[in-house]
Structure formats: C-alpha cells, structure tokens
Computed example of a mutant assay.
Amino acid sequence: MSTHSTAGRKPAASSDNAGTEAAARVADVLLLFTGGPRYLGVSAISRELGLAKAVVHRILQSLVSREMLATDPGVAGYRLGPAAVALGASALRRFDARTVATPVLRRLRDETSETTTLSGLVGDERVYLDQFESPREIKMTVDIGRRFPLHAGSSGKVILAFLPEERQAAVLGRELPALTEKTITAADDLRTVLAETAREGVAVSLGERQPGAGSVAAPLFGPDGEIHGSISVCGPEYRFTPEVVGRYRVLVRDAAEEIRHSWAWLRDSGDSAGR
C-alpha cells in the first residue's frame, strides 16, 4: 500500500470553490459589456463589481489574450473582442425562436411600417435579439444584445407578467429604477398593470423605457409552454394613437401565436428526425 503526503494541499472542496468564484468573476466582467457603455475601464468595473483593481486588471488581460475583449489605439478602456462577437453570433444562430420569428416579424414590419423586435429572457432581464427596421424616415431602432430591466417598456412588462409567481415576486421585491419620468416604479402599481397584461396577452408602453417611444408587445412562449421572450412593434410615441394601438394589439398577439406554433412544429420535426 502506498502513502501520499497531503501537506500543503488545499481540500478539494476549497479548490473547487475558488475555481467557481474565479469563473463567476470573469463572467460578471463580460456581462458588464452587454448592457453598458461600449468601452469600460478598470476603475469602472472595479466599482461596479466591488473587486480590487488588481483583480480586475488580471481578468481583463486574460480576456484580451483570448480575444474576448480588445482595446483600440487612443481610446481608454476595453470593448468586446472578435471572439465574444463570434460567440454571440453563434448563440443567435442557434436560437430557434429567432429562426421562426424572422418571416413573421418582417411581415409585421411591412403591415405596420414600424420597427418590429424580438426579445429574449436572460436571467431576470431581457435582451434584444433581432429587429426589422421601419422604412420610414423617422423611426425607432434598438440595440441588439443590450440588456434591459423587465419592469420598463412593453417588451419587458409582457415577459414579467407571465413569469412564474416566485420569479415575478423576486423582481418586484427589488428596486425598480426609473428609466424615464413615465417608468412605473411602484411595485403595487406595476402588479396591477401586470395582472391586466396577463389577462389581455399584450402590453403597451408610451415613453416608459425611452422618452418619446411607443411600443406594443406580446409574450413569446416556447414549445415547453414557458415564457422565453417577447415580440413588439415600436416607433415614435406620437404615432401610437389609441386607434393605432388597438390595431397593433391584435396584430402583435396574432404574430406571437404564429411564432409559437411554428417553433413547436420546428422542435417536433427535429425530434422526429432524430428518432
């Protein structure tokens, strides 16, 4: 029987915990770049995450070496690099809902002459995954890949309205920051709006997330019956009159249902092909 000295070694559990914590820090740093300014510096990241500047600097250098982040001459700070862009593009290609939503959203754009969007649920936030821009000279466009809170805007509210009760309560239990003067920040008021949204299957926003912007959104359910995201029609608020909003409610709701059926069919066809 052989013996091995354990002197100087950390318990396996401690080593695993340290590795998990390090990985979480790297992920947190990367995630900051999806919802904030294009360029971020060591000091800003350190303040946001509560990490020492030396730790942040090491993480950034590691990410730069793997092309997940990059720097530009004459510009202070770091930005997402080509490897991160490639990773995001790969994820988008594999998002089935985006595939089946494309023709529906393009047709909805043509029917309304307004920009149409697809949002996905990511944690307790949402991210714009795709858009089809309005042909009009004055129009609204969105930032693909940028994260937004669920309580502000129609695309977020309609997702929040259909989240499981525990997850919805967790979101409403946190601070609800005002993105504009019209953002609903009182949890009780928002609960009332969400209950109405759940009954009607559609949400409306007039300047709640972005000043001067109007939107109508419907929930996007996956083949598993769970809420996965939302679709919307959006444009300048002055064009979203009560009559127009009433028309868009029907169009967006029908479009979301069409995407859901197509998504389910695509999944079922894929499962059958693999059997």
Rank of each mutant, 00 (worst) to 15 (best):
M1E: 12
S2W: 04
T3A: 03
S5I: 04
A7G: 06
A12Y: 15
S15L: 13
A22K: 12
A23E: 13
R25E: 15
V26D: 04
V26C: 10
A27V: 10
L30P: 10
F33G: 01
T34A: 10
G35H: 14
G35Y: 14
R38K: 14
Y39I: 12
Y39L: 13
Y39E: 14
L40S: 12
L40D: 13
A44Q: 14
I45C: 08
I45R: 03
S46L: 03
R47K: 13
E48F: 02
L49A: 00
L51G: 11
K53Y: 04
V55F: 01
V56D: 07
V56S: 05
R58V: 09
L60T: 15
S62I: 11
S62T: 14
S65G: 01
S65Q: 05
E67N: 14
E67G: 06
V75P: 15
V75F: 09
G77M: 11
L80C: 12
L80W: 14
L80Q: 11
G81Q: 11
A83C: 07
A84C: 08
V85H: 07
L92P: 04
R93S: 11
R93L: 07
D96L: 09
A97S: 07
V104C: 15
R107K: 14
R109H: 15
D110R: 05
T112H: 03
T112L: 00
T112W: 10
E114K: 02
T117M: 06
G120E: 06
D124Q: 08
E125M: 03
Y128Q: 11
D130T: 01
F132L: 02
S134R: 01
T141H: 04
D143C: 03
I144P: 07
P149F: 00
A152H: 00
G156F: 00
K157C: 08
V158S: 01
I159S: 00
F162L: 03
F162Y: 13
E165W: 00
L172K: 01
P177T: 03
L179H: 05
T180W: 10
T180N: 09
K182L: 04
T183D: 02
T183Y: 01
T183F: 00
I184V: 15
I184M: 10
D189Y: 02
R191A: 02
V193E: 13
A195W: 10
A198P: 06
E200P: 15
V202P: 15
A203P: 08
S205I: 10
E208Q: 04
R209S: 15
R209F: 11
G214L: 13
G214D: 02
V216G: 02
V216T: 12
G222R: 01
P223A: 01
P223H: 10
P223L: 00
D224R: 04
I227W: 05
I227Q: 00
H228R: 14
G229A: 01
I231R: 09
S232G: 05
V233S: 10
C234P: 07
V245Y: 11
R247P: 13
R247M: 12
R249N: 12
V250W: 01
V250R: 03
V252L: 08
V252I: 12
V252W: 04
D254F: 06
A255P: 08
A256C: 05
E258A: 08
E258W: 01
I259D: 05
I259Q: 04
S262T: 11
R267N: 09
D268K: 05
G270D: 02
S272P: 06
R275W: 07
